[in-house]
Structure formats: structure tokens, C-alpha cells
């Protein structure tokens, strides 16, 4: 059983092909890392999983995508997204909501908390998991524009966690974060595995090595190599993967 299963998935935007016959499988309760150079289609791949690709004008998806128990391309996208949390490449906390409300809104929408007390607990739990609690516990009612870029990104992670998703899509969640906090966040991600399946994009081979159970390497819209992380890191079979792991592309 797989949390995400793609068979021969191609994505076109206009008449340009962005993803090319992508086939991959993400087992439940694992961290699945997608690597690849800039522009290789990583974000697009995540957006197919939760159908955010629908928002892209002129985008067309072909192939078969199974997400959790959904036939993703033929399901109601809103129904599908109830089970999938996403953290975007550029942090996008709601500017009109406080730090507390940003996290709480996700819990409320998904019926995670019934009382104010439960809500408080979920918010605290999510902020702790996202390694942000200590920095914001005294300013929960500030607005997110007062946070640093990295703090905002962690707020978005907390927001995604507060919905108690079954699948978590992370698009370079540590891109704006210092190494110390990035390491903490990695620990958090690994510790989430009991509850969720994580599909994560990263540019850092070291980070991938620390968190990944499975790795897929994307290059120009194609999966050029995928497999269990240890195997792939020890013996990358393609030149592209070797270069990528050495940080040469």
C-alpha cells in the first residue's frame, strides 16, 4: 500500500511538457524526498498530488495518480485536500491573522479541536512540533509580518500540522532557516512519521541523507533514479544523481 502512487504522469503547461512519464511510489509513514536541479519540476510534482496544479492556467495532467485512497485526478479536489497539508516554497502565512489564529484556522476548518482548550492545545502542539513555540509563546497575538522569514516558514509548517493531515507536502521547508533550526526541523519531520507520510523537496543532499527513507531524483521533468535512500546515496547509478549528490548541479 502506498500513500502516493504515480503511473506515467505527464504534465503540460500550454504546449510545454513539464513532467515526463513520472512513475513513483511512496510507502505510508515514510519520508520521501524529491531532489533535482532548479526548474526540474519538483514543485509541479507536489502540486499534482494535491491538485493545486488546477490553479495553473493551461495546465493539463495525464496518467494515473493515487493519493491515500483517492483516484486523485478524478476526485473532488477539495475532498482530497482535506487530508493533505502543504508547506510552500515561499512562506505564506495569512497576513491578517495572528500567529495563533494562523495555526488555529487550520485546526478549526478540519474539525481537529472542539473546544477553546483543545484548540489551545493543538496550536501549542503544532508550534512545538514546528520548533517555533519557544520563540513565539509570548507573542501569539502578533501578526506574522513581525516574524523572520525562517520563523514564517515554521509557522506555515505548524499551520499544516494543525490540520492533522495524513500526507504532508513540504516544498523546501528549510530554505530560509539557519542550520541549527533546520536540523531541529529535520528531527521534527522524522518524528512525524508515525502519524503522516511526508513528501519533501530539498536541494540539500545532506538534508536528504538525514531524513529520507526514499529518494527520487528529477531531471528535466523525468525521474532519472529512485529508490531507498541508503541504496541511492551509497551507489547512485546515474551520472545525474552522482552529480546532484556532489552538489555539482
Amino acid at each position: 500500500m502506498f500513500a502516493v502512487e504515480m503511473n506515467n504522469v505527464s504534465v503540460y503547461i500550454g504546449d510545454r511538457q513539464i513532467l515526463k512519464e513520472v512513475t513513483l511510489r511512496t510507502p505510508y509513514n515514510t519520508v520521501f524526498v524529491i531532489m533535482g536541479p532548479s526548474g526540474s519540476g519538483k514543485t509541479t510534482l507536489l502540486r499534482v498530488i494535491n491538485r493545486l496544479i488546477d490553479l495553473v492556467e493551461g495546465a493539463r495532467v495525464e496518467g494515473f495518480v493515487k493519493v491515500l485512497n483517492f483516484d486523485a485526478l478524478h476526485s473532488d479536489p477539495y475532498e482530497l485536500r482535506k487530508y493533505i497539508g502543504m508547506v510552500f516554497q515561499v512562506p505564506n502565512p495569512f497576513p491578517h491573522l495572528t500567529i495563533y489564529e494562523n495555526v488555529a484556522v487550520a485546526a478549526k476548518i478540519n474539525g481537529v479541536a472542539k473546544s477553546k482548550r483543545e484548540l489551545d492545545e493543538v496550536v501549542k502542539w503544532a508550534l512545538e512540533k514546528a520548533m517555533l513555540w519557544d520563540e513565539v509563546k509570548d507573542r501569539l497575538y502578533d501578526h506574522p509580518h513581525k516574524l523572520s522569514g525562517g520563523q514564517r516558514q515554521r509557522l506555515c509548517l505548524a499551520r499544516a500540522l494543525a490540520m492533522k493531515p495524513r500526507l504532508l507536502l513540504l516544498d523546501e521547508p528549510t530554505a530560509n532557516i539557519d542550520p541549527v533550526n533546520a536540523r531541529k526541523l529535520e528531527e521534527a519531520i522524522v518524528s512525524l512519521k508515525d502519524e503522516v507520510t511526508v513528501v519533501m523537496v530539498t536541494h540539500s543532499p545532506h538534508q536528504a541523507a538525514r531524513v529520507a527513507d526514499y529518494v527520487a531524483v528529477l531531471y528535466d521533468g523525468r525521474v532519472v533514479e529512485q529508490g531507498p535512500a541508503q541504496q541511492l546515496f551509497l551507489r547512485p547509478s546515474t551520472e545525474i544523481a552522482q552529480k546532484l549528490l556532489r552538489g555539482e548541479i
Partner: peptide
């Protein structure tokens, strides 16, 4: 658009 995406990224329905 990123705020609309943020909504969908926490499982909000169209109405929400």
C-alpha cells in the same frame, strides 16, 4: 494567489 494556495494547503473547501 499564494494566499488562496495557503487555504487549499490546509484543506479548506471553496466556501471556507
Amino acid at each position: 494567489v499564494m494566499y488562496r494556495e495557503a487555504c487549499y494547503g490546509i484543506g479548506a473547501t471553496r466556501y471556507e
